[in-house]
Amino acid sequence: TIDDAFRAIERAIQAENEGRYREALKHFLDGGEMIVTAAEKEASQKVRNLLLHKGKEVLEWAEHLAEWILE
């Protein structure tokens, strides 16, 4: 659900702030994927587009974090 997705993102932010970057990455990926999944089930085109945009933002952040971890 969207609530689960945002809880995962909150955990990711907390982990990132505490320097637990790999854990943060996992939570960002989980949250982003949950948002995209919820968007695919959404009946309203406007809400679907907003959710897809937010999911994409979260997944892009996860990608940047992963690249930073690997440096």
Rank of each mutant, 00 (worst) to 15 (best):
T1W: 11
D4L: 12
D4R: 11
A5T: 02
A5I: 12
F6C: 13
F6R: 06
R7C: 08
R7Q: 08
R7M: 06
R7D: 04
A8E: 13
A8Y: 10
A8D: 02
A8W: 10
I9M: 03
E10N: 10
E10K: 12
E10G: 12
E10T: 11
E10I: 15
R11T: 04
R11A: 07
A12W: 07
A12S: 01
I13V: 09
I13D: 00
I13F: 08
Q14I: 11
Q14C: 10
Q14S: 07
Q14W: 05
A15G: 03
A15V: 03
E16T: 14
E16R: 12
E16W: 15
E16V: 15
N17K: 14
N17M: 13
N17H: 09
E18I: 06
E18L: 08
G19S: 07
G19W: 04
G19H: 05
R20F: 06
R20I: 02
R20S: 03
R20V: 02
R20A: 03
Y21T: 02
Y21L: 06
R22L: 14
R22T: 11
E23N: 04
E23C: 11
A24T: 02
A24I: 07
A24M: 04
L25P: 00
L25I: 13
L25R: 02
K26P: 00
K26V: 06
K26S: 05
H27K: 04
H27R: 03
H27M: 13
H27W: 15
H27A: 06
F28Q: 01
F28W: 15
L29C: 10
D30M: 15
D30W: 15
D30K: 14
G31V: 12
G31T: 04
G32S: 11
G32M: 15
G32C: 13
G32Q: 07
G32P: 01
G32A: 15
E33F: 14
E33A: 14
M34D: 02
M34A: 10
M34T: 03
I35P: 02
I35H: 03
I35G: 02
I35V: 03
V36G: 07
V36N: 08
V36D: 01
V36Y: 09
T37Y: 09
T37G: 08
A38W: 08
A39M: 09
A39Y: 06
E40A: 14
E40W: 15
E40V: 14
E40K: 14
K41R: 11
K41V: 06
K41G: 10
K41L: 08
E42L: 11
E42M: 13
A43I: 13
A43F: 10
A43G: 07
A43M: 12
A43W: 11
A43C: 13
S44L: 10
S44K: 06
Q45A: 11
Q45E: 14
K46F: 13
K46H: 12
K46Y: 12
K46D: 11
V47Y: 09
V47L: 13
R48E: 03
R48M: 06
N49M: 10
N49C: 14
L50Q: 08
L50G: 04
L50T: 07
L51C: 08
L51D: 00
L51G: 01
L51R: 00
L52F: 08
L52D: 01
H53I: 14
H53W: 12
K54E: 01
K54Q: 05
G55H: 12
K56I: 07
K56Y: 09
K56P: 02
K56H: 06
K56M: 10
E57G: 04
E57D: 08
V58G: 00
V58Y: 08
L59E: 01
L59D: 01
L59N: 03
E60F: 07
E60S: 10
E60T: 08
W61F: 05
W61A: 04
W61Y: 15
W61Q: 03
A62I: 08
A62Q: 02
E63L: 14
E63F: 13
E63V: 13
E63A: 14
E63T: 13
E63D: 07
H64R: 12
H64L: 10
L65F: 05
A66Q: 08
A66Y: 12
A66K: 11
E67F: 10
W68K: 05
W68Y: 09
W68F: 07
W68Q: 05
I69F: 07
I69W: 04
L70W: 11
L70Q: 12
L70M: 11
E71W: 09
E71H: 10
E71M: 13
